[in-house]
Design a protein around this nucleic acid. Sequence first.
DNA 1: ACAAACAACTTGTTTAAACAAGATAAGGAG
DNA 2: CTCCTTATCTTGTTTAAACAAGTTGTTTGT
Lengths: 242, 242
Amino acid sequence: MPKMKYIQIYQDLKTKIENQEYEFQELLPSENTLIFTYSCSRNTIRRAISALVADGYVQTQQGKGVRNIFQPTPQTSFTIGGIESFRESAARNHQTAKTALLCFTELTADEKIAKRTGFAPGSSLYYLQRLHYLDGKPLILNHNYFLKNVVTGLTPEIAEHSIYEYLENTLHMLIVTSKRIMTVEKMTQIDEKYLELGDYNCLAVVSSQTYNGDGVMFEYTQSRHRPDYFCFQDNAVRRRPL
Amino acid sequence: MPKMKYIQIYQDLKTKIENQEYEFQELLPSENTLIFTYSCSRNTIRRAISALVADGYVQTQQGKGVRNIFQPTPQTSFTIGGIESFRESAARNHQTAKTALLCFTELTADEKIAKRTGFAPGSSLYYLQRLHYLDGKPLILNHNYFLKNVVTGLTPEIAEHSIYEYLENTLHMLIVTSKRIMTVEKMTQIDEKYLELGDYNCLAVVSSQTYNGDGVMFEYTQSRHRPDYFCFQDNAVRRRPL
DNA sequence: ACAAACAACTTGTTTAAACAAGATAAGGAG
DNA sequence: CTCCTTATCTTGTTTAAACAAGTTGTTTGT
């Protein structure tokens, strides 16, 4: 679908880097070279390179070139990074995913819920609890709140499979931005009941507000992760000093 | 220093949004309007807007405009986000920071350390333990590894103040990229001794590899955070479906 | 031999222009 | 009135060109 040039170039360079066609610390071909090989303009090349910089794959140095700083990660545990559904993460990590629906109700946001979730007071919401299994082990307990008049026609059957697939393929909704906050919290009785926490008495909590293409926040989710399988990857680029 | 136009425009729009000169969900002025007000080209405007999108401040919609989706956060606890030192974070959160140096030694990376940190085996390293206090409370226990031949002249005095200030202002090193991994781990005896963990038996761990402007990884740090004060903010933008 | 100057690379910033594509409101045909 | 077309707004993609600035190797002058 996206036949955009800069995405093609970005993906091509990315796979080349992942396949180690460039050595660690090696300089990539210069912009002029890439212009020739991809037969495009300099801006398009620079756009692709910028995306690689944001991914932490390369680093640019004025006057020198673009340096490959990608090192393959062991990929040992279940890692999360950008915006993706549980099923997508599982597929990327080559593991089998299963989801159990614990609770499926509708409710109206009171002051307390509104304050915690960010929805307007009085909003009609779907509230569901879901337990995600990876390779048979219960890893994540999700508390989902969906705006009812946006996520129309949600059913328990859909919730057991993949909600994001329903949103994107059936409702044709575009998921765009997700604001996330990560904390560590003490376990609750529900956590203890469903997640096999062992000796741990707390867990990793990721709270996220997700916006669709129309700019409306349609989802608030609190994901409670079993600590021994929680791994969040991130790449930060230092802003220029003021 | 940065007299670049797109950064000026970015910062100007950002402060305007933070000061709520645009309402939540309001559309910002169109690109053509901004071209006129800032008297610059369209690309420059679009570059500033892109940075705001990455910050999660605005969202663009083709055919409609740029929507303000910034909501002021309560700013209750100690939040971390981009690459910044403990002192910078403390200043941003209007709190007083203090650092205690627990350990300052030199060592050579063996296979085990090399595997964990990402440094080459045999590298000469500084290893230090530092305890960060915020408003008198011990919050973070840091295990720092610095490449000795890059971070030259490091002393305990510097380590007690701010290492990043030394790196940037004295060594004139540019900090560029930081790859981070967040996990939750069981507490160790050292954690228990220095951090006041209370009932918690585990803590938030942020492991980071930091690269300088020459593309060399000069720092590996494991930050062990007291869970009740740990809060990591993030904004993710959904990539286009393949 | 040494150092300064220069040329030839590299990436960084900015402008200009053209076309594509989505959204919206006005206008006309039925 | 309803529906379709059209014009006009918006952002999205791509190209071209110019200049700035950092790095590196070469040449030149002493």
